[in-house]
Design a protein around this nucleic acid. Structure first.
Lengths: 162, 162
DNA sequence: TTTATATGTCAACATGACTGACATAAAATC
DNA sequence: GATTTTATGTCAGTCATGTTGACATATAAA
């Protein structure tokens, strides 16, 4: 019985630790998205627009299918956001050279400017957190976040991040 | 000029590092919410229900105002979610003893069961990431996430996490 | 020539945010 | 005791963003 009890205790401690890890992610994500969210309302855009602009900026010439795979949303969902970004001149599409069915995605000049404007406060927030926590902590942050990501993307990111 | 150039290079490196830190948070949050999201559809609940259940479970007897402050949403937004949870017997309200205007929030027995069911896969994911990354990395993860959180909540969490 | 793929579009619907206005009960203040 | 403030709830309308399902078109691959 005492064995079980002490086992229980360590499980409680472990569970509390895990719950904190979960909560921290919620709070961090909540605040980390709040900066760009404010700017986005100026443009009457939402968080979905930011995500699209971010990933197109990071991967110029990516296909629609690739973007869909990253965002994990339906093409109908992306379509609305994407066509708004295109209509208003932040994103442009070019036919693929090899495969002409593909519509390769690029930020326009204003798209780059928008992306920069949105990411600036986010980068500032991360920069502050990084420098306060120190290089070793940053390594740990990356390791754990990487471990939270599904296998497929984790593998892909491991490659591109080196 | 060469000085400026080399300075530029280090800024590029830094920016790439920050962008990775931002992306990682996106990917981790995306996958980390996907497990409970699936379970929630069974109940015809959404992510908002999970958040409410999580925080009420963590803070039994909390007031509506406290929950609103954590979630950072309007009372009208919370109202729908909360009344659904109450109607279907996952949450109950009790009048405050000192201040009888307050409606203190508690999980019912089924509420506890639901919370457990939702958090199990999430805890498993965090547990795996933690054990793969190691104790030192976990410390770093916590430090950086804490640094990403707005001052007020950071201060509160620092207290309760010790 | 046929089939599969990449993309787009129309329509209908659900969720969860928002604003604004108003209501009630209880606490706090004058 | 009367008035004001606070905690909470509710009604109504709107918006952003996700979903499913059906269908269309151009191009690549078989």
């Amino acid at each position: 019985m005492t064995d079980i009890k002490s086992n229980d205790d360590s499980l409680f401690l472990r569970e509390e630790e895990l719950r904190q890890g979960i909560e921290l992610l919620f709070y961090a994500y909540r605040d980390f998205t709040s900066d760009p969210d404010e700017i986005l309302t100026e443009y009457r855009f939402g968080r979905a627009h930011h995500r699209a602009v971010h990933f197109i900026g990071r991967n110029p010439g990516m296909t629609v299918a690739e973007l869909l795979a990253i965002l994990r949303i339906t093409k109908q969902s992306l379509s609305r956001v994407l066509s708004q970004l295109i209509d208003r001149g932040f994103v442009e599409q070019k036919k693929g050279a090899e495969d002409r069915r593909q519509r390769l995605l690029y930020l326009t000049e204003s798209g780059v400017a928008l992306e920069l404007r949105l990411s600036r406060p986010q980068q500032a927030r991360v920069a502050r957190a990084y420098s306060e926590a120190g290089a070793e902590a940053v390594e740990g942050y990356r390791k754990v976040l990487m471990g939270l990501i599904n296998e497929e993307d984790r593998a892909r990111l491991k490659k591109t991040y080196r």
